[in-house]
Design a protein around this nucleic acid. Structure first.
Lengths: 307, 307
DNA sequence: AGTGGGGTATCCGATTTTCTGATGCGGTTG
DNA sequence: CAACCGCATCAGAAAATCGGATACCCCACT
């Protein structure tokens, strides 16, 4: 018939990578083979799927349409395989998860504790990283899922909004701390610790500061959460962090306030490989993560509502 | 990976026929081959899919479960194939076209609708812009062709006259509108909306007004067609627009008259990169654009002849 | 009990498909 | 202009698929 699973899988890789060569690498094949498979599809259907113009290739309308359906085929096949494998004896469950530091700071530990308790023979592997690296891993199918900040390019990914968590103003404990929402513009000259440009939150934070007319006296870039907290704790620098990172004990030594007028929030997004379905164990672990995240975030949202 | 489409298809046949032999017949294969494919699946998954007991075979629970998912795979594959085959007709490739607002207002939509219908697998990219920008793009080879007002400098361009369309006098609907050609000089003091100097038509219009001795009380410069129409519709300002922009519904709310003694027209010119020939798909699209433009323009030329 | 028939598994050579490395071609870059 | 990058194409090698022959099993019938 028209189009084998391998044809489809390679086509999908090419579509997502926008490159025959990169697709070949991802699929452990040669560029030549990939080219032939795509050509097979094209001649079988009598339709060009990619425009080989210039340096880059672009999908044709037919390519776009086929991709959407091709994903369904791969997902269905994946679901079928997983289903039947559940009947096999001695399945060695393993899940690989990518998390941004926001998630690993306070959320991961309690979720993980509950999970290993309930499912002792599932092997859990957690990788910490920033959105770019995690997104790449998801695309390559190296992780079951990842949790990253909301971002633009979702080619090859299945994504859904997981949680919206408030961003909080964090300063060293002053002794005279008033809880409750504050406005950035009211805090006078700010010496602000920001993530670098590789971090998705950087753009959001800068836009926000400009919008509300915050008075930024100085900024430094730190891409380490531990370092940031430590730096803020011992000086007159301040920073802005997602509420998820500030559960319970984590706030001792700091004055923390919600940011209001307008509110500033961070959207966490779940991403999975578009061509795969979530393994049962991974789904359970995700659910636990989500529960913990909501619990932690809810505390601050409540503080926020009371304003 | 585990399980090719052929494996799955043969498995489904066996499941439905409850027989390897009958399945082989149905799929135009040999019993031997069918057996091998099913065994492939079973060894790959490590699960028996059928119980070969007694005279008849029966699916195992795993077989039942796999069957349900397997159908989804085949359906998804079928849907994907059908979807992409719908793009098989017509040309393929990519065309990039630059058009001035005069063309995009009324002409583009019907031509585009006809084109994508007949050639679903051509990726069409239309850029709107004024003559200077479009000319630049043609010179750089970034577009297949562009349609602009007639202009002087044609170095590096292949150009031909596409269409001469009347310029029309446009005012807000007054309730007492007389159709038919008018002379600008007869309309008393004019509050006239003009394009700015970057627009090629500006010079033509100014020269014309001076030539016929029109009484221009005031002018403002608007380089937005949407804005111009809206502004004229709600006040006592008037403007002059190419007939191409005033097809059918577009004239409701306005009093529109051809301009006579002498006539005032706009020449639209097709320009292409001199070093390239027009791609077949681009030629077809151009032809449709030209047809629509002539159709729209013809209505007003007729009104003009009758004078 | 022996035999025949329907049905599946397995083996093996032939065929077909798929993969790979080399090479060519067009476009881009320095 | 040369070097480079990326895709297409080709031919030989490797792998898979296929198809016929055969072995095996269970059951029914004699």
């Amino acid at each position: 018939m028209l189009g084998t699973l391998r044809d489809i899988r390679l086509f999908v890789s090419v579509y997502e990578e926008r490159s025959f060569t990169l697709a070949a690498q991802r699929e452990n094949a040669t560029q030549s083979g990939v080219s032939q498979h795509v050509r097979n599809l094209e001649t079988a259907f009598g339709v060009r799927l990619f425009i080989r113009d210039k340096r880059r290739i672009a999908p044709t309308p037919a390519g776009d349409a086929y991709y959407r359906r091709a994903i369904d085929v791969l997902r269905a096949h994946d679901a079928a395989s997983r289903t039947v494998q559940a009947y096999a004896a001695g399945q060695d469950g393993q899940i690989v998860v990518g998390l941004m530091p926001t998630m690993t700071r306070c959320t991961l530990a309690p979720a993980l504790a509950r999970f290993v308790d309930a499912h002792p023979n599932v092997k859990v592997h957690v990788t910490e990283g920033y959105s770019a690296a995690l997104t790449q891993m998801v695309r390559a199918g190296e992780v079951d899922f990842a949790i990253v900040p909301a971002f633009a390019d979702s080619a090859g990914l299945k994504s859904r909004l997981l949680l919206r968590t408030p961003e909080l103003f964090v300063a060293a404990a002053s002794g005279a701390h008033l809880p409750g929402p504050i406005r950035l513009a009211d805090r006078g000259k700010l010496k602000l610790v920001l993530p670098s440009a590789v971090n998705t939150r950087r753009g959001t934070l800068e836009t926000y500061c400009a919008t509300v007319g915050a008075d930024i006296a100085r900024t430094i870039e730190l891409d380490t959460m531990f370092g940031t907290l430590d730096f803020v704790a011992r000086g007159d620098w301040v920073t802005i962090l997602p509420a998820l990172m500030l559960d319970g004990d984590a706030t001792s030594g700091f004055d923390v306030n919600p940011i209001a007028n307008p509110s500033l929030t961070l959207d966490l997004v779940l991403i999975e490989p578009a061509r795969r379905t979530l393994a049962p164990a991974a789904a359970i672990f995700l659910d636990l993560l989500e529960q913990e995240a909501r619990r932690i975030s809810a505390v601050w949202e409540q503080a926020y509502q009371e304003s």
